[in-house]
């Protein structure tokens, strides 16, 4: 090989790759507004993004799978948590989710919290080509899972309660709760925890819609 052949490889290699890349970039940028439903990208969402950046959230959390690996990925978090829960959490993280690895209290203003939740809700709708993948174990279980299980997840119950060995240990293990407590008792406990245990730190879930409440009670009662 001669020097000029080497130079030709350099020039053509660079040009071909750059042309492909720039062409697809042009196409991607024109398609991304639709894939990210940019029409719903309100000022609140943009302000929420700035709050997210200003507090450097991305160096602990990943989002779209990018960032620090120290805290949960937040791409699809709003499919897992209800907005009210998220707001309470952002107000005082450790009080709502007493995990061993803590998130510092950022002392956010109410408006900032509203915007952050709007931002995360918008991110939740981005078409990410199916990422993160649905866990294989859950996919294998198919639709047999009870609807109450998603209420259980959305309300963050596992922050305090264990289920099949997974979850916190502030509250009792719920793996077999259905065999020791009747459905009415469970419903009463969810609506007014202190009616059973005057000193219980558990919050009331009376705010749940009648359907969610019924689903959750059915799910817990099924744990035998």
């Amino acid at each position: 090989m001669t020097l000029s052949q080497g130079r030709a490889i350099f020039i053509w290699g660079t040009v071909i790759s750059a042309v492909i890349f720039l062409g697809l970039t042009y196409d991607s940028i024109s398609k991304m507004p639709k894939r990210t439903h940019a029409e719903e990208l309100s000022d609140a969402v943009a302000d929420g993004k700035w709050t997210w950046q200003r507090h450097n959230c991305n160096d602990c959390h990943t989002i779209l799978g990018i960032g620090g690996y120290y805290a949960p990925d937040l791409t699809k978090v709003m499919s897992q948590r209800d907005p009210e829960w998220a707001k309470q959490f952002l107000k005082d993280p450790h009080k709502v989710w007493p995990a061993k690895r803590r998130m510092p209290n950022l002392h956010l203003k109410d408006a900032e919290i509203e915007n952050l939740v709007a931002f995360l809700t918008w991110v939740n709708g981005i078409d990410t080509n199916g990422w993160p993948p649905k866990p294989m174990a859950v996919a294998a279980a198919g639709s047999a899972a009870l609807p109450g299980e998603s209420v259980f997840r959305a309300q963050g119950c596992s922050a305090c309660h264990k289920l099949n060995g997974v979850g916190g240990d502030i509250g009792p293990d719920l793996t077999h709760v259905g065999s020791t407590r009747p459905p009415d008792w469970i419903k009463q406990q969810l609506e007014n925890p202190r009616s059973h245990f005057p000193n219980s730190p558990m919050p009331s879930f009376a705010k749940l819609s009648p359907k969610d409440m019924k689903d959750l009670v059915d799910f817990l009662s099924s744990l035998k």
Partner: peptide, 30 residues
């Protein structure tokens, strides 16, 4: 210098369009 040309040529050929491995899951086309 001849091999430096070939080397950076290959780096840029694979590396520029290779940026695409970061565009799998971020809201970009399939």
């Amino acid at each position: 210098e001849k091999w430096l040309y070939v080397e950076v040529g290959l780096v840029l050929f694979t590396g520029i369009a290779g940026t695409g491995h970061h565009y799998y899951w971020i809201g970009t086309p399939g």
